[in-house]
Design a protein around this nucleic acid. Sequence first.
DNA 1: ATACATGCAAACTTTTTGCGTCCCC
DNA 2: GGGGACGCAAAAAGTTTGCATGTAT
Lengths: 130, 130
Amino acid sequence: MRRTKQREVILDELVKLRTHPSADELYGRVKKRLPRISLGTVYRNLEILSREGIIRRLETAGSQRRFDGDTGDHQHIRCVSCGCIDDLAAGADRARCDALVAKGTGYRVLGRRVEYLGICPSCRKKSGGS
Amino acid sequence: MRRTKQREVILDELVKLRTHPSADELYGRVKKRLPRISLGTVYRNLEILSREGIIRRLETAGSQRRFDGDTGDHQHIRCVSCGCIDDLAAGADRARCDALVAKGTGYRVLGRRVEYLGICPSCRKKSGGS
DNA sequence: ATACATGCAAACTTTTTGCGTCCCC
DNA sequence: GGGGACGCAAAAAGTTTGCATGTAT
């Protein structure tokens, strides 16, 4: 992967932002340092960096995709009112965990969303994966 | 809420589909029964029905929004290969639960995604909610 | 009768892509 | 020097909206 000024600044801004920005929030930040950068370049680099495992593409709801410069194992908590996303430490317990999360983040916890990820039976058949 | 043929057919198709369709998959189905219906009507009704709590708008990743005719408490499992989404019974345990889910669904379970939902401190301040 | 819903098309938002030029290795 | 990356602009893809007309209550 080639090292360009644009890629470097995009990564730098993403890592230091900690707010899980969307592509064009990040574009706004980066443009202050590289006024001639294009939004397409931001998208292309976010795509490449996440494919390489250097950043993480968040799988959250909402109309825009969000990105995270922290690839460590952690979950998120999202405000249903303003949509902001904060980090949560990796471990998690269950019912009583809500209280811990609330205490740790200051959020009023309304619920949690759990979605399993896997390979469905028909895709397993196609690719032969066990 | 007024009872129209369009709304009725959209709801009927969504409830019987069980595949968590996107708006335009549903549009395709509904159009077989009401050939003159427009995609805009499908979107408008999905919005109204979910606002009324009659259907559920799924908060999953992916570029398209998906809808669920089953509003009962349950989670989902999604195939990272083809993107299909299946239902999961409400309860869930943890590590050993992966095996149960795998056995129950036939999926190869790769992981789970947990995201808490709540009201962030700054929104709590604004609306005064405890 | 009238307020709400529909069909259609245009507008919007977010993301992707084609193309000619540029620059990192 | 060559291939990946860039900027720009157009295209895609998904969703929302304005408006004139239709229809459920």
